[in-house]
């Protein structure tokens, strides 16, 4: 039985222009459109494709977060995940939940669920992966169980169709807490402040190429 565990996160929609709270404690999330992290959509898509190619038997989606994380899990289920696990973390605990905590939670779940891959699995116990690196691409072979993270160019995620969205409502979501998994979520960092980045000075629209050449010369660029 080869299983794939996919971590998905509910985040502010990528197209939203975020606003910093006036008290500098974070960004405004209330009333703001949220969606599944675009990278996680790609990971789910890849896991579902593995299942369609019969390279994986089961796809389990996991999300750590408040009650609304279940919406994100439903989206994953509608895309083709078989079942989901909601690790409930909310309030102050969620505010300071860090990748270190999430990785410990995923590690525990991967062991409990006997996942061969946290995200993708290949039957032979070996995967050949092309990685995106700074100068180009790199090919590595890894042994499973393995943990993979998806780049934007891995695939194009499918849209969940209405029948699949309806079906997803019947798929199981198991609820656990970090405590159930014996993961300590004590804050390792303290957020001192969240502020707006410096605003750029308004620029000018130039009438023609000559004006642009003039400005570039003036500034010593050419």
């Amino acid at each position: 039985m080869s299983r794939v565990l996919v971590g998905v996160k509910r985040v502010i929609d990528y197209a939203v222009k975020i606003r910093v709270k006036p008290d500098k404690t974070g960004v405004v999330t209330e009333g703001v459109k949220h969606s599944m992290n675009p990278f996680d959509e790609i990971a789910i898509e890849e896991a579902v494709r593995m299942k369609e190619k019969k390279l994986a038997d089961e796809v389990i989606a996991v999300s750590c977060g408040p009650a609304q994380a279940q919406e994100t899990l439903r989206t994953a289920l509608a895309m083709g995940a078989d079942r989901a696990i909601h690790v409930e973390v909310s309030g102050a605990e969620y505010e300071t939940l860090q990748p270190l905590h999430v990785s410990k939670i995923l590690a525990k779940l991967a062991q409990e669920e006997k996942a061969n891959i946290v995200f993708i699995e290949h039957g032979q116990g070996e995967l050949t992966i092309t990685r995106e690196v700074d100068g180009g691409l790199e090919v590595v072979k890894v042994k499973t169980p393995a943990v993979l993270s998806a780049d934007l160019r891995l695939n194009e995620p499918r849209y969940a169709t209405l029948p699949n969205i309806m079906k997803a409502k019947k798929k199981p979501i198991k609820k656990v807490t970090p405590k159930d998994l014996q993961v300590d979520t004590t804050a390792r960092i303290e957020v001192v402040s969240v502020e707006d980045p410096p605003v750029r000075q308004a620029g000018s629209i130039l009438p023609d190429v000559d004006a642009l050449v003039g400005k570039l010369k003036e500034a010593g660029h050419v």
Partner: peptide, 20 residues
């Protein structure tokens, strides 16, 4: 122990104090 890093695609700057 106190660092500044961009969050939300550089649309906010977060100052964090590391306790580790």
């Amino acid at each position: 122990d106190t660092f500044v890093r961009p969050i939300y695609a550089g649309n906010a700057l977060q100052t964090v104090k590391v306790k580790d």
